[in-house]
Amino acid sequence: MPVLEVKNLRKKYRGTVAVDGISFSVEKGKIVGLLGPNGAGKTTTIQMLLGITLANGGSISYFGKDFRAHRLECLQRINFASAFNTLLGRITVRENLRVFAELYQIPNPNKKIDELLERFEMNGFASSLYWGLSSGQRTRVNLVKSLLNDPEIILMDEPTASLDPDIADKTLSYIEELQSERAISILYTSHNMAEITRICDTVVFLDRGRIVAHDTPQNLTRRVSAATLRLVFLSDIEKVHAHLRETGQTFDVPHPNVVEIHSEENLIPNLLFAISHVGATIVDIEIRKPTLEDVFLQIARN
């Protein structure tokens, strides 16, 4: 039984279809990425999954129970973390967490808060006002808040947005640890394709409210066959240009001694073999394989 199951979910705002009959599920211990360009319907979907926006149709089930009919029961077992939602700035970290511990009816709340703050290396900030924390520290406190009730699934809306790469990497490591230690399911939205590729088991691509692709990151990148072969030459680059023109290849010359050839990924070995026999001296070879970003761009542009 999936932890979260969405069937034919729809949302319309004054004639504009924001979410158009999407269906997907999140299995136990899996991380599902929700991707799409701006206006694709990601945020609306998350809001409906949390109950703060009402759907026009379809169904949402957590743990096999209808969300609408068992709202409180479901919310007790799920949680939410977002870079766009903060806690109260004027009260301390511990006070903020204490409020949520009461809302989730956590037994022995102070012990739980201390354990989690220590786990995220934030115990030194328990008495600090929330607004005095850096973005990275806030993210960690938000993660602490999202773990107070030992949720079985966490909905994360761009949790690493506006973090510097080092802190974002640390945050992702925390998330990976959580998944492996506790088998938590996560629905994860982000614009960062590297993040999605790194942590998600499957990816749901949304565009204009519809699911346009749903697969593992690896399978999705296989959909884009184009790759780029970047070669740096020591001399005789004119011979290479001539060969490429003769064989009808598409290529760019970003620098006088550099050639970037755009080709199908499976044709690159033959291409490389042919160029090596032209007579020019190759000093560097780089093959750029398609990434999730290429898939994203292809979907967004289509």
């Binding site: 109950g51 029961e73 919310l75 939410f80 939602n85 903060t86």
Partner: peptide, 12 residues
């Protein structure tokens, strides 16, 4: 403080 959603996604 952008905390209202946090409150209402808790079982409140």
């Amino acid at each position: 403080s952008r905390n209202l959603s946090n409150m209402f996604v808790a079982p409140l």
